[in-house]
Design a protein around this nucleic acid. Structure first.
Lengths: 119, 119
DNA sequence: AACGTATATCGCCGATGTACGATAAGTCAA
DNA sequence: TTGACTTATCGTACATCGGCGATATACGTT
């Protein structure tokens, strides 16, 4: 991504993009679904569920952690992961606003592109 | 990505991941915000708004188009883009379900990892 | 300490994403 | 047709991702 020229965009734009990036892989979606269903799972259980090597799954988990989507607690030699619903809800709300799916219907729009814009 | 071993995951998981991937760049978030505010914009207007080269912006627009997030209509020599709210709403709903932010509160969960799981 | 288990990290590789200039392809006007 | 304009695509360079085996780290048990 060439560092995405990320400094050229707003904090919120980068933040939303990062959140979306965390969800941008089917394996990570699967992990989220698993945690959604079970409430809590160890890393090992997640590995067993996915058709990927332990190292790869660990990377996906770490990606979700860095995005703030997971809670984890040590539990002896295991680590239990669960969803951080607060973060998730917060991001979802931001997305709803950005995507315009909260209130305000599709906004009809008079469409100016073919009228005044004939410069 | 490596084709992401995408065949190993469900259709819906891949679909959601693709949608998230389309949003996983601040420039694309910025494009969406722009269209959300203006309702409709030409490619040229979008280029002027972003701090990126025309070719790069065109690629981002194409990424959003391929994800089904944009409507476009020819308008003389210009092309007007707008948000495809139907698609967006549909994806948002899927995400709400996957992320568990629709109904069902955070699910307390008895947490079995430290009890029965001591195999 | 030594071992087994659980998880994270490293190193490597091929594939993909991002960025750009240059150029092609299309439309409209003269 | 020529020319100005708008947008998409090509070619290239580089960074990042996604995958894996191997290894390191950390904990609990004996």
């Amino acid at each position: 991504m060439t560092a995405s020229k990320t400094e050229l965009f707003s904090e919120e734009q980068s933040s939303l993009a990062a959140f979306a990036g965390a969800l941008a892989h089917p394996a990570r979606i699967a992990i989220i679904e698993l945690l959604q269903n079970r409430g809590e799972s160890t890393s090992g259980e997640i590995v067993q569920t996915l058709p990927l090597a332990q190292a790869t799954v660990s990377q996906h988990i770490m990606a979700l952690r860095k995005a703030g989507l997971l809670n984890h607690r040590d539990c002896g030699k295991k680590i239990c992961y669960s969803l951080n619903y607060d973060q998730i809800r917060q991001f979802c709300h931001s997305f709803q606003c950005t995507l315009g799916t909260t209130d305000a219907p599709p906004t009809p729009v008079p469409s100016t592109c073919c009228t005044e814009e004939n410069a």
